[in-house]
Amino acid sequence: MNAAEDVLTVTEPEPELIVAPPVRRPMWRPGLGFLHPRMWLPLVLMLAVLATLWTWGAHSMPYLLPPLGDIGDTLREDADYYVNNAWVTLKEALMGLGLGLVAAFVLAVITSEFPLARRAIMPVAVILNVTPLVAIAPALVVAFGFGAAPKLIVTGLICFFPILINTSMGLRAVPQPVLQVYRTVNASRLETLWYIRIPMAMPYLFAALRIVFPLSVVGAVVAELSAAGSSEGLGTAISLASSMNRLAAVYASIAILALLGSVLLLLVTALERRVLHWHESRQGNGG
């Protein structure tokens, strides 16, 4: 009983503890400002330095790092192979993300509307969150086989918790005076939820999505890596290549994964800018 109470207190975290608070600066502003050398030169220089270091490392420790040229070669020669596997992993990541998003959002609404449900669900969600997913993945493979199912579940689980916590916090973040205004006109619970609570939760939801979009790729890869018999996906490609000591192929897959993660981050940033235009304008005003 006491332990359960403890878990409960853990479930009311400060926003900062889980993810960045929803008030944040846009990563970059629209416009052509990025064409100015001041914007791109630092990054280009940094990349040049890293490439030089890499080349030096590949030269002195050939068994640790493949030359960049080799990575480029395998990417070019087996382009189809990488594109197909990247597509498989991306699909798993996005579908798992969708699954986690829907489940977490629905549960967030339920837990914020019904305190009793919150007391039942939140401790379980916390326990699930602190359980290492890398450890769950093999068990899921045993249960669901080498198909897509365990990958979607692992990805969904990884995305689930940040969305649940943030959304349920956002749904309850409506200031008291606002609620009072709408209570004096007798707005129904559903109306309050739809017109007030859900829009209020959007910045919180997006703060979670910014973390979870790139994370979904991690979930898909972890699941692929734990399903030794899988035939597709970049995670499978990595374990295959490393078992055959093909370092260049391993790093080619890793590079594509990094690219996928960045693309997903870009996607969620663009989405956020559309949905939360009102939220950004607040920052522009310093008010």
Partner: peptide
């Protein structure tokens, strides 16, 4: 009843016009 609290209690994602018409659209 109409209530004006100490803070304006406007919804930041709605324009002024939509803010003032929302109470008419509920209930």
């Amino acid at each position: 009843l109409g209530l004006v609290p100490q803070a304006p209690a406007l919804l930041p994602w709605l324009t002024v016009l939509k803010n003032v018409t929302l109470p008419l659209r509920v209930n």
